[in-house]
Each structure stands twice: as structure tokens, then as C-alpha cells.
Computed example of a mutant assay.
Amino acid sequence: MDVSAPPSAPPEPPPITVTATGIPVNQSAPPPILSAAKLGGTHSPVPWSTGLCDCFDDVSICCLTCWCPCITFGRISEIIDRGSTSCGVSGALYSMILCVSGCSCLYSCFYRSKLRGQYFLEERPCTDCCVHCCCETCALCQEYRELQNKGLDLSIGWHGNVERQRRKAIVPPSTQNGMKR
């Protein structure tokens, strides 16, 4: 008698989520950072949706960034890292670097580079480190506005934005003539 083990079910694929950028992301693995070089140089850099000195277009973000840049930076970094680091952890690290060295711009300029890589943005008006070293507040405000203009709500974090996108994707069935019994 040939007794063989029953065939096992194929492993379930990891959950895939479509981000606000339209790029599917495997939630169990860290998301790749896409750049024009990785895509074969087919994408040319696009301009920022707002200028560096357009801080007063949104006074609430400007005030938040002036008085507590760690919150603005934490929100930006959570979105850029696609939820792998929380707003609180990034903001605390930013504050600690600011208190110890007084040069938090050395940390935040790397996130500007990541943001530019994800959205194929121009490196303007100068290099990322120069922008953050010369005008940290304006740079953080510009990055915050850029993510808002991409349709993200930074106040609810990465996971909140994913949930919001998922709810938008679920469309209730339509009834033609109303409900009937």
C-alpha cells in the first residue's frame, strides 16, 4: 500500500498593498526605493509642487515646524519609510541629534534625498544637505507640502493612509432602482 503524505497547500503570498504612489508594496519585506537609475533612467526629474520659500501657504505647518520641527520631521519620515519607523521614534531621534549636536540637518537631509528618489523630484535649489543646513524649517515645510500634494495625510501616519486608500478601493454595490424586498 502506497501511503503518501497529502499534498500541502501552497504557501500564501505575502500581503500586497498599493501605496499612494500607485506602486504595489509587499508589506512583509521592506519596500524598495525606486529611482530613475533603477528604472533605466527613463524618468526625468520633475519639479517640486511648491517652492522652498512658500512656507506661508500653510501657516499651520509653518508654525508647527518653527516651534516643534521634530513633529514635522517625524511625520515626514514615517511616510517616506512607509511605516517601518514611527513618527515618534524618528521625531525623538531628530530631537536628540538636535540637542546633542545642534545639527539635525545632517539627519534630515537624508530623508529629503529619499523623498526625491521616491517621487523623482529635482534637486533644487541646491543639494539636499545645503537646503537643510541653510534653511531647515523651509525644507521640512516644503517636504510636508509635497507629500500632502501627493494625496497623503501626514497627521494619520503611513498605516492610516494605507487604510484610507483601502477603504476608497472598496466600492459598495450600486442598486439601480433602490432596495427591493
Rank of each mutant, 00 (worst) to 15 (best):
E146M: 03
L140C: 05
D81V: 01
S113P: 00
C68E: 14
S77H: 02
D128Y: 00
I71R: 09
G74H: 08
C138H: 13
C55E: 09
C103A: 13
C62G: 00
G83V: 03
R145K: 13
P125K: 04
G83D: 06
E122F: 01
I76L: 04
S113Y: 02
G88F: 12
I79Y: 03
T85W: 14
M96P: 00
C141R: 11
T85R: 14
C68R: 13
R112I: 01
G88I: 05
C133P: 00
R116F: 01
G117F: 00
P69F: 07
C134N: 11
F120M: 04
V131S: 11
D58I: 13
E78D: 14
L98M: 09
Y94H: 13
S104H: 06
C55T: 15
E143R: 00
C68H: 15
G102L: 10
C134S: 12
F120P: 03
Q118L: 14
H132W: 02
S101D: 11
T137F: 09
R75C: 05
L147G: 03
D57P: 00
V100D: 10
G51E: 10
S104C: 14
G88Y: 10
M96K: 12
C68I: 06
L106H: 04
E122T: 10
T65L: 04
A139K: 02
T65D: 02
D128N: 14
D81W: 05
S77C: 09
Y107N: 10
G51W: 03
Y119H: 15
E136N: 12
T72P: 03
R145E: 07
Q118T: 01
I76G: 01
C87N: 11
T127G: 12
